[in-house]
Each structure stands twice: as structure tokens, then as C-alpha cells.
């Protein structure tokens, strides 16, 4: 895509007119890779502002200059400003004698429960004992889904691997009950039974559904988890932006706490289903500035990765 502009210009100052065609094709390229349209636009604008009036050397083209500049901005967006170090924080909580609590939230069907189970496996592999809280009390089969994961994880990690105690347990109260209350009971049970981590599964909800967003805000306000993870799928298009903005907004608006919580990090799922259309990673991090803590790359327990910013940017610009 960039090759068609090679060799246009020698050494002179970059003008808006000279940059425009390159930037237009770059914007379309990013949109084609599933970056949200207005974010692709904004990124190109900021590259234009940075480059306008700059001198380009005889041997570099506008296209390569633009590409380099875009590359740098993309890497910057994907590089976390803040490190989320769950293992360290769990250890710290352990020393303080309380369980470390992670809440998973997001829209319907993105992979909250499955990736919760994968993260549970990862924590168990690191020697921690985990309590899963079944706080999706709405969707048919949600509780049984977690129970199945608990049973499988228990088989993979029998008590013999956890000092004779259960490595994983499920706290469930069936359907139709208040999710915030169940989370609280689960956290209390975990404290009493000395579990290291509580993973709170919540029901999927649309970001515009006010009653459901209110109840999520309540769950988070009442239980003040250590980490709030937003789960989003790499398949999502322009909606990525709206989802994150509105989840954050709801946590702020519907909480009556002094310092309302917001999303602390992102789990980007279904990364194995998108080939090189990796733009959702950009849309999500650009929107929130929050780090992608995990990437889901499949449907089994080990399919959990860290984001490789360089590789994502490479795929984006390819």
C-alpha cells in the first residue's frame, strides 16, 4: 500500500498537500485493519501535525517518513503507561491477609467467563488458590459453565498441588439473585477459607442498558475489587470505543462513592479469529489509555498471552 508513493520527493519541507494523499491511504489502510474510523482519522491528523514543515532527506520518501511516524505513535499507544502486575499484587494482598479481587465486565458474549477460567488456570499454575464467584445470575447456563470449568481445573490441579487444599472453588447461589450480594459473600468466604484470589464473573450487558449498567456500578462500588478488567473481543469494530467510554462513564456516574472506580485494564479476546485485522487493540487502548493486560488467543486454558506491541504494530502497518 505504501509502495505506490515511493520516490515522489527529494529533500524539501513537507507540506500538507504533499502529505494528504499518503495520509488518506494510510487512514484507509488502518480502517481496513479494523481500527475505528475516527481513531484512524485522529492518528493521521496527529502525524500530519507532527510532520508538516519537517525536512525530509534526499533518500527518504514521504511514505516512509509517514510510516515511521505512525509506527512510533502506534507503539506509544500500545505501550502501557502503568504496569498491571497481578502476581505481585496478589502476593501483597496475601501478606495483608486478604484475597485479591478481580471483577470481569463487558458486553454479551465477548469471552468474560472463558477468559476468567483461563486466568484462574494461570493463577493456579503460579501456586495461588482461587475462588470463582458466579455473579452472572441471569444468562441461562452461566453457573453451570463456571461449574464445568471449576471441575476441569480441579482435575488439572488437584489439592495435592495446593498443599492439600482445594486449588479452586466456585461460590454460587443460582439464578435471579443480586449479583453484588453474591460477590460480597464470595469475598467473605474466600477470606475465611484463605483463598488468595477471587474472580468475579458478571453477566454481559449492553453499554446503553441503564439498569444493567447501574447494577454493575453497584457491584463494583459495594465490593471495591482490586482490579476491574474490561473484556472486549478483537472482532469488534467501531463499537469498541463506545463500549469502553460508556462502561467507564457508568462506573463514574452510577457510583455514589467519593472516588468512583474506572476500568483498570483490558482483556482482548478472540485474537485468534482476526488474522491481521488487529485494529481493535488500538481502538481500545487509544480510548482509555488503559493497558491490555491479557490477550485471549483460543478456547483452552493455556490460550492466554501478553500483548506484543511491536508485533501488533507490524501487523497493522503491513
Amino acid at each position: 500500500i505504501f509502495s505506490m508513493f515511493r520516490g515522489l520527493v527529494g529533500s524539501k519541507a513537507l507540506t500538507k498537500e504533499a502529505l494528504q494523499p499518503v495520509l488518506n491511504s494510510m487512514r484507509d489502510h488502518l480502517i481496513g485493519k479494523n481500527v475505528a474510523a475516527d481513531i484512524a482519522e485522529k492518528m493521521c491528523d496527529s502525524v500530519a501535525n507532527k510532520l508538516e514543515g519537517k525536512m525530509v532527506g534526499t533518500f527518504s520518501t514521504i511514505a516512509s517518513t509517514v510510516k515511521q511516524s505512525l509506527n512510533d505513535s502506534l507503539v506509544l499507544i500500545l505501550t502501557p503507561k502503568r504496569r498491571v502486575d497481578i502476581l505481585r499484587d496478589v502476593l501483597e494482598a496475601q501478606r495483608a491477609g486478604k484475597p485479591y479481587v478481580i471483577t470481569f465486565c463487558g458486553v454479551n458474549g465477548v469471552g468474560k467467563s472463558t477468559n476468567l477460567a483461563k486466568i484462574c488456570f494461570w493463577l493456579m499454575e503460579n501456586g495461588f488458590r482461587v475462588m470463582i464467584a458466579a455473579c452472572d445470575t441471569f444468562r441461562a447456563g452461566a453457573v453451570e459453565q463456571l461449574r464445568t470449568h471449576k471441575t476441569r481445573l480441579h482435575t488439572l490441579h488437584p489439592p495435592s498441588m495446593h498443599g492439600g487444599r482445594d486449588g479452586v472453588n466456585l461460590f454460587e447461589k443460582g439464578y435471579g439473585k443480586d449479583a453484588a450480594g453474591i460477590a460480597m459473600q464470595a469475598i467473605n468466604a474466600a477470606r475465611e477459607q484463605r483463598y488468595d484470589v477471587v474472580l468475579v464473573d458478571t453477566a454481559g450487558r449492553m453499554q446503553d442498558n441503564e439498569p444493567l449498567m447501574r447494577s454493575l456500578a453497584k457491584l463494583i462500588t459495594v465490593n471495591s475489587p482490586d482490579l476491574v478488567l474490561f473484556v472486549g473481543e478483537a472482532l469488534v469494530g467501531n463499537e469498541a470505543v463506545d463500549q469502553l467510554v460508556k462502561f467507564n462513564q457508568a462506573l463514574a456516574d452510577y457510583s455514589n462513592a467519593e472516588n468512583p472506580r474506572s476500568i483498570d485494564g483490558i482483556v482482548l479476546t478472540k485474537f485468534d479469529t482476526i488474522d491481521d485485522k488487529v485494529g481493535a487493540a488500538i481502538s481500545m487502548t487509544y480510548t482509555t489509555g488503559q493497558p491490555i493486560v491479557f490477550v485471549g488467543t483460543g478456547q483452552s486454558y493455556p490460550d492466554l498471552r501478553r500483548l506484543n506491541a511491536k508485533a501488533v504494530v507490524h501487523a497493522l502497518l503491513k
Binding site: 467467563s113 444468562r139 441461562a140 447456563g141 453451570e144 459453565q145 463456571l146 464445568t148 478456547q299
Partner: peptide, 16 residues
């Protein structure tokens, strides 16, 4: 037969 809880999900929906 793959997804955890898939049959329970369908069963609960269908029963209702």
C-alpha cells in the same frame, strides 16, 4: 459438545 455449560444453557432456555 465443546463449550462449557452449552447443553445446560439450551436446556434451560428450552424448558422455560
Amino acid at each position: 459438545t465443546f463449550r462449557a455449560g452449552a447443553f445446560d444453557q439450551l436446556k434451560q432456555n428450552a424448558t422455560k
